[in-house]
Amino acid sequence: MFLVLTVREGAEQDALGLLADLPGLIRSVRFRRPEDNLTCIAGIGARAWDRMYDVPRPPGLHVLPEIVGDRHTAVSTPGDLLFHLRADRVDLCFELARQLMLRLSGVADVVDEVLGFRYFDNRDLLGFVDGTENPEGTPAAAAVFVAEEDSAYGGSSYVIVQKYLHDLATWNAISVREQELVIGRSKVDDIELPDADKPSNSHVELNTIVDDDGTEHDIVRDNMAFGEIGSEEFGTYFIGYAADPSVTEQMLRNMFVGKPPGNHDRILDFSTAVTGSLFFVPTTDFLESGPPEAQPEVAPAPSTTEQPAGSLQIGSLREQNER
Rank of each mutant, 00 (worst) to 15 (best):
D269G: 02
G154N: 11
L268I: 02
N207I: 05
G106Y: 15
S200F: 09
T132G: 13
G214H: 00
D109G: 09
L38P: 04
E95Y: 08
A87Q: 05
R98P: 02
A20K: 14
S157I: 06
A143C: 08
A87V: 02
Q313N: 14
A225C: 01
V90M: 14
E228H: 12
A142Y: 07
E205R: 07
T272M: 09
L61T: 12
V63T: 15
G45K: 12
G127I: 12
F234N: 10
P194S: 11
G69V: 00
M101L: 14
L181D: 09
D80S: 12
P78D: 14
S28F: 04
D88P: 08
R89L: 15
L168I: 06
D213Q: 04
V144W: 08
N263K: 06
G184N: 08
L125Y: 07
A196C: 07
Q99T: 08
W171M: 01
T6G: 00
H84L: 14
T304N: 14
E180L: 02
Q313F: 09
L64G: 03
R253P: 03
L115C: 10
V188N: 13
A11E: 15
A20C: 02
N201L: 01
R318G: 07
A196M: 11
V159C: 14
F280V: 03
P308I: 07
E66W: 06
F226A: 00
V220Y: 05
H166A: 06
R98S: 13
V159E: 13
N201G: 00
V75L: 13
P282V: 05
D70N: 10
P23F: 15
A243D: 13
Q13K: 10
L268V: 01
Q307S: 12
N172I: 02
S231G: 04
V247L: 07
R57W: 07
A143F: 10
F256S: 05
A169G: 02
A142F: 06
E149Y: 05
E35P: 01
A20P: 04
L193W: 11
E322P: 01
R266W: 04
R185G: 00
G137V: 09
D269R: 01
K198N: 14
T138L: 13
